[in-house]
């Protein structure tokens, strides 16, 4: 007979300062994959074009940006074909923005399920990360196709192939930033919904503080720090540096983004674990 004091689970008012139960998360890995599958299957059911929508979104946005920012506003793209310039920024930005937007309402959107059954709540934001990663992979194919086309057609591109190894690292930072901000906001919104309003236009504003519709090099020096303080900027610049040969590559700024990501994830996790046990009472 097992020891009487050998409990598997102790339910207490508050979590220990921080306990991330990796083992429990791992046990629910099947749920994560099923949630990813659900996201894909459910979103495009009863649509005619189905997954083609993955391409339509970035294409239309790119064309709009090209017309407005390049043709009308005449913002330079530093000799890079405007289409490719915008597409590269949009592809990466969309991943970050989608991760943030969708994880930021984790508690509110899943209240019905969370109120009835327990599983590690972190599974839901993680599944968002994974399903958006798949979407990113599909959209990257579009980018790569355009990129190869311009590579063969014009000689304005000078990719830095040797830095290609950094690419997964860039995705990691973007995912981390999206998750960190997302779960932080989601924990803040359980009790006070004020932050929900912030996320909507905050993400949009942040886009203009990132070098997506303009290259960093044309930003006047006195405003440059604003753009560089945004942890997303150096990731997008590095991405452009690798594929387009345009943009700023600097270990210091990239390191800053990475440290920023680690810090925001820690803060996000802390607030998430504080909230996850009691949010049902306040949501």
């Amino acid at each position: 007979m097992a020891n009487e004091n050998d409990w598997d689970l102790i339910i207490e008012p508050k979590n220990k300062w921080y306990q991330l139960d990796i083992a429990a998360l791992w046990k629910y890995k099947d749920l994560l994959m099923l949630l990813v599958r659900r996201d894909f299957v459910a979103v495009y059911k009863q649509t005619i074009l189905g997954p083609v929508w993955f391409f339509i979104q970035p294409i239309i946005t790119t064309i709009t940006f090209t017309i407005i920012f390049s043709n009308i506003a005449n913002i330079s793209t530093n000799d890079v074909p405007p289409l490719l310039f915008y597409l590269s920024g949009i592809t990466l930005w969309t991943y970050f923005a989608d991760c943030l937007n969708k994880t930021s309402n984790t508690f509110v959107a899943n209240a019905a399920v969370f109120g009835k059954v327990y599983f590690p709540r972190l599974i839901v934001p993680l599944s968002v990360l994974v399903s958006n990663l798949i979407k990113l992979a599909i959209q990257l194919c579009l980018f790569i196709a355009c990129w190869i086309y311009y590579l063969l057609e014009s000689n304005t591109l000078s990719p830095n192939y040797s830095y290609l190894v950094l690419f997964p690292f860039l995705i990691l930072i973007m995912a981390g930033l999206g998750l960190g901000f997302g779960i932080l906001i989601s924990s803040l919104t359980t009790k006070y919904r004020d932050f929900t309003f912030l996320v909507g236009f905050g993400v949009q504003l942040l886009m203009y503080a990132s070098p997506i519709v303009y290259p960093l090099s044309i930003v006047p020096d006195k405003y440059k720090w604003i753009v560089l303080a945004n942890p997303v900027s150096s990731v997008i610049e590095t991405f452009k540096y690798i594929f387009l040969g345009e943009g700023l590559f600097n270990w210091f700024y990239l390191g800053y983004s990475f440290v920023f990501m680690v810090v925001i994830i820690i803060i996000g996790m802390l607030s998430f674990s504080r909230v996850e046990k009691s949010f049902m009472d306040t949501v």
Binding site: A2, D6, W7, D8, L9, I11, E12, P13, K277, M280
Partner: peptide
């Protein structure tokens, strides 16, 4: 474990 207690605890095996 859907919500937490305010005081006290539950031990489960």
């Amino acid at each position: 474990r859907v919500t937490n207690p305010t005081v006290g605890n539950v031990k489960i095996k």
